[in-house]
Nucleic acid binder design. Structure first.
Lengths: 198, 198
DNA sequence: GTCTATACGCTGATAGAC
DNA sequence: GTCTATCAGCGTATAGAC
């Protein structure tokens, strides 16, 4: 880790137990009603607290959402570090492709609710740490001095990750979906599979 | 229940001038603050009306949003009809690809604000007419008895339309973007030149 | 038909007592 | 750490003036 940890931290006050109860209640309710349809009152009721008590632990509604999705954001950050440490650009790009597809498929059910949730999208737009990570990944994908086609293809790859949460493919086997997503991504970004080491 | 409201129609009351003033004010404000960040009060103030007067013309906040995006939805509906009237499936698919890309690029600036707006996405999810059109286009794209790869590719194409509103490509020339989007879509969906009807 | 005045229940958020 | 009390603002709704 380098530098400034506090930027990304939701910084909840107090000790752990009530916190976890709030987050558990929030996740349950997000599944049932979506993020936008979940009020602080509902979270407080299910966690057995008052609205104001919830506010003691999390200073804003956004902070609860961020605390819920932070593990996934951290995983993305780790991905860019792994890619940055790769021996060459092809390897780095392949780490990003397979890593992002894996990540998005690991959270497939969660993603169908959270990643595709409009309210989350709104929150992430205004989240500086997330923007930075997004920009870093984007730069790693397109490389230096990209032409128009490269930039378009990278953008298509980025938006294609969303299909993991698509209702039309919800019942498709995850392994099959993974293979097709990675195949198409490799063809799109134009990186050959890394050569075997030996 | 009041009267027998038509399900699909935003059905504003009254007719003409004030309506348009409200819609103009709404569009301006959507550009400035996004849909979610625009309240009825703001719309009323800019249109020179009270909140209740706005509520007279549009019974709900959603109705205003729907009235704003209805022209685009109608265009999509016309597209599926054109595709359905095509001589063979390859032609139909190509009509859909080029038509959807064109549509999304025509509304590029509008789309960057509206099409990508989380609040709009939320509204459209609950909009039955829109769901039906989406399902129809999807069926026309993948054809009968699609295999897994076909379905994945169709889903990728669908999500790829979003890049028209992507900030990273905002300054890219529209014609160049169009060419690359169509090229990639054709490669993805894999439509050959229409065969002669034998 | 078009609009004003007024209000309801709810939201996210804050201040301060225990 | 958790409470009560309170806030302004929201979308929605109705009664009634013109």
């Amino acid at each position: 880790m380098r530098g400034r940890p506090d930027v990304a931290t939701p910084s909840p006050r107090g000790s752990g137990i009530a916190q976890q109860r709030i987050l558990d209640a929030a996740m349950d309710l997000y599944f049932e009603h979506g993020v936008g349809g979940t009020s602080l009152q509902m979270i407080a009721d299910r966690a057995g607290l008052t609205k104001a008590a919830v506010y003691y632990h999390f200073q804003a509604k956004e902070d609860i959402v961020l605390a819920v999705i932070t593990p996934a954001l951290d995983a993305v950050a780790r991905l860019t570090e792994a890619a940055a440490a790769a021996r060459n650009r092809s390897t780095a790009v392949d780490i990003l492709i397979t890593g992002l597809v894996d990540l998005v498929l690991e959270n497939r059910r969660l993603g169908a609710v959270l990643w595709a949730d409009p309210t989350i999208a709104q929150i992430l737009i205004g989240h500086p740490a997330r923007r930075e990570i997004g920009a870093r990944i984007h730069a790693q994908l397109i490389g230096p001095n990209p032409d128009a086609e490269t930039r378009v293809r990278a953008a298509i790859f980025g938006s294609s990750l969303r299909i993991a949460a698509s209702p039309e493919l919800a019942e498709m086997d995850t392994e099959i979906l993974r293979r097709h997503m990675i195949d198409n991504a490799r063809r799109l970004i134009g990186v050959r599979a890394p050569r075997p080491v030996a």
